[in-house]
Write a protein that binds this DNA or RNA. Structure first.
Lengths: 249, 249
DNA sequence: GTATTGCTTTCCACATAGTGGAAAAGTAGG
DNA sequence: CCTACTTTTCCACTATGTGGAAAGCAATAC
């Protein structure tokens, strides 16, 4: 079965172009000029202009009236929230997050891997975070232990795409450690950028239809092994309670 | 100036159709059948099919392999996070949220109005929420005091669209109270659905380019006026500190 | 104050991409 | 095995989406 309309395998060109522009706006920091988007996308100025105007009408893009530059739009927030509020794993783990935070006295996060990106989709803040919070954090998946556990559970094409973004040495190390990550229910080691360690526990099962998710807790460096074991145990308990809610025993 | 290509004023038809389907998926609960989407959109089966496949390739839609039904996709989360992480008001208020939560001993939320919808874009949970958390909540704007303050500050077309969604009596009441809401920096009254009261404080200024935002704190009913005044004062202090960060004095 | 430069937006002609009716393929239930 | 419904593909057609050229706009330099 092959639908020729819609450029076999690639989908409708106009939708692909619109999505391309959204991706470019997401990859940039802040607002971009129409000419920059045309250069990076390979599309002409009038085409970029019409696509951006169409996306603006749909509230998916916003044009800064002062600078005429374009950025992502607020309509994306509603769509994303609707998506997240329907994820069974988030609904199931939700009731346990505050209790887990109070028990550990640490900020608890829920991470989801999307493509090669690790996204913080929920968090319950402990008092220890002070003024350094990142409620809408995204980072390359392998930067954090949670991302390593989840990335290792991706299918081959996604795993390969992830490796393609890495330098040779980092890709080799990741490839070497993949089987270990895939076999582990939890991981405690350093993050790449935040200068902290992190304990991560996988939430999702291979048979789940939604993207892989994990719990994550940032910890000080050089935590005693007993303390790590306690944290893992608490996180596992929350995870297992959520599993019972979801019908896994 | 008028660009005929792109159906004057409506943008490109294909982008509009794609956005229409995203909106229908957001409005539904869970996954929808292709035939349902065709019926609600007025588009033909093959058209809906090609649009959905294109959106799926862009990670904005997901097809459940078991039921063949369609739902919103995880790519929306990355785009939304990138959008939110660039909002100046969120960056500015962020460092004060944990301290405010600890001071009030109550959950603190940041609300943003998008169209006629109020969206919780950040929250710092107190211990009082227990197992009833709504981290990705969306609701009609006027259901909550924060939404009332923000909706009253919308332009005429958006305000009108909001009224159109209401029953006649509710619309009349909102119209009667609009001026009062627009003139108030804070509001303390009942929410429509949660069975709680709420204190809300406006965060954004009319001249801000980003969507209107507010701080919100749920409170028990029949709170003494002195306590309400204390809560408002603390929230205003956080708001004013964020304003100084943003260059307003 | 004027000219220049660069960006955004519109105009126009054209070709093909996107559309919908019809048909085929797939799946679940009786 | 048959039926009913849904999803996906095929096919012909035309209206939409494209890009080159031009117009409009705003900021900057002289």
């Amino acid at each position: 079965m092959r639908d020729d309309a819609g450029d076999a395998r690639g989908g409708l060109g106009t939708v692909r172009n619109a999505a391309l522009l959204l991706g470019l706006l997401a990859a940039g920091s802040g607002y971009l000029q129409l000419t920059e988007l045309a250069e990076r996308s390979g599309l002409s100025y009038p085409t970029v202009h019409r696509l951006l105007r169409s996306l603006t009408l749909a509230d998916l893009v916003h044009q800064d009236p002062r600078s005429a530059r374009y950025g992502l739009g607020p309509g994306l927030v509603v769509l994303s929230h609707r998506y997240l509020s329907g994820l069974p794993i988030l609904t199931a783990i939700n009731p346990y997050l505050v209790q887990l935070r109070d028990e550990l006295r640490l900020t608890v996060e829920v991470q989801v891997i999307v493509g090669t990106t690790l996204v913080t989709v929920d968090q319950v803040d402990g008092s220890e975070v002070g003024i350094y919070r990142s409620p809408h954090a995204t980072c390359p998946a392998l930067d954090r232990p949670a991302g390593r556990l989840l990335a290792a559970r991706l299918g081959e094409p996604d795993w390969q795409a992830l490796l393609d973004d890495l330098e040779h040495e980092a890709a080799a190390e990741a490839a070497a450690r993949r089987a270990d990550w895939a076999a582990s229910e939890w991981l405690h080691e350093a993050t790449r950028t935040a200068g902290t360690d992190e304990v991560a526990v996988v939430l999702t099962r291979a048979e789940d239809a939604s993207p892989p998710a994990a719990l994550a807790v940032a910890t000080p460096p050089r935590l005693p092994e007993e303390r790590v074991a306690e944290i893992v145990e608490s996180m596992m308990r929350a995870r297992n309670a959520a599993d019972r809610t979801r019908g896994y025993a």
